[in-house]
Design a protein around this nucleic acid. Structure first.
Lengths: 198, 198
DNA sequence: AAGAAGTGTTGACCTATGTCAACGTTTCAG
DNA sequence: CTGAAACGTTGACATAGGTCAACACTTCTT
């Protein structure tokens, strides 16, 4: 974890994320950004461990993170991937302050902005625009999760891959076959075979 | 659709839902309830049609509703079921005011409380406790959707059914095999066979 | 009350996808 | 730079679960 950086450069992406959604004056924006602290993560670094209580929400400046679980037989299941300009955390743990039943991991060398839970909910409470943004994150997250469930239901392997390419075109380019397969709910062999026939 | 009822009885369940989460005085509660109008629905009645834009959020006093889709070959997929004391709507359509890509249907004779989108967002904006409740609905919905995704990933049919019995014990008792199967992502035959071996 | 339509169960059969193993290629640590 | 470990691809084989059909039972409709 680095010392907070006063340079506004690192807040560029976050600022435009917020600006796209709300008109906020410069002072207010500086105030919001002041709660976000730069953090670097190495490839494969674990940011939230299983059973660890998650106290931080991350915004991704560069790189990518994923949420995954490991079942008793050691099989990894990836649940969610986030890339530049997206927010991510181990939400169930973050909300309830219970031990996470999942891992949050950087899958590339990443540059992040971190806000603590305390500050986050403080802002949600005191800055209406920020509360609104959080609501949007939840709405979009919920809707996407629903779409993924029914989008996949009854699809065979080929259809799932086509669906993924259609709705998240960057995905297969950034994510290893193994992780993509664990996200799609199929074996790496099957994903490999499917890709070979387009 | 019935004429609004002045009896407080129909607001009992909604009031206790809110009371369990926030301390609200009697006047405020009456104010909130005044935006919810009683609606009856028959078994199998469609409340939101495919391509219809959804303008109403429902709270269930009695009965049960489901969200489902139909694919090109006529196969139904159930996405979500709600029972007494739960909120439900075709959320993507409700949020964005785009035509719904799903159906909202009563699966039993149901008594509902309906609030229009306009009133709903008005309340979210003006009544902090209500805004908070909406945030909670979204948080819980998102977390549950995530849990369902990874809960099912890699599970075989038997494990899915056990998972369902564990986390939604009432489910199989209230929902037909056909609908339950379409929720679990397996054929009715398979669900039937699985149930026969516990 | 009777016929029609829908639902649940079960059997026979088939196919998509998982498992396992082999092998070449890429990545990474020292 | 080099060896070890991880990854991607492909083949052979096994199997869970899908499809289809038959039948009994329930439930709607009139």
């Amino acid at each position: 974890m680095q010392v907070p950086d006063t340079s506004p450069l690192i807040y560029k992406r976050l600022s435009s994320y917020i600006m796209q959604r709300h008109n906020i004056d410069h002072e207010q924006m500086k105030y919001i950004c002041s709660f976000f602290h730069p953090v670097s993560a190495k490839r494969n670094q674990i940011l939230v461990n299983y059973n660890e209580t998650c106290r931080i929400y991350y915004f991704i400046n560069k790189g990518s993170l994923r949420l995954f679980t490991v079942n008793k037989s050691g099989l990894e299941t990836s649940r969610y991937f986030a890339f530049e300009g997206m927010f991510i955390t181990a939400l169930p743990s973050f909300i309830d302050q219970q031990p996470a039943e999942e891992f949050l991991q950087a899958i590339e060398k990443s540059e992040l902005l971190a806000i603590t839970r305390k500050d986050f909910y403080e802002m949600v409470r005191t800055v209406p625009e920020f509360g609104h943004i959080y609501r949007e994150i939840l709405e979009i997250g919920f809707v996407n999760a629903q779409k993924r469930i029914y989008g996949f239901q009854g699809f065979d392997a080929l259809e799932k891959v086509k669906w993924l390419i259609k709705f998240q075109p960057k995905f297969l380019l950034r994510v290893s076959n193994k992780m993509a397969a664990s996200y799609l709910g199929m074996s790496p062999s099957t994903l490999s075979r499917v890709k070979s026939r387009l």
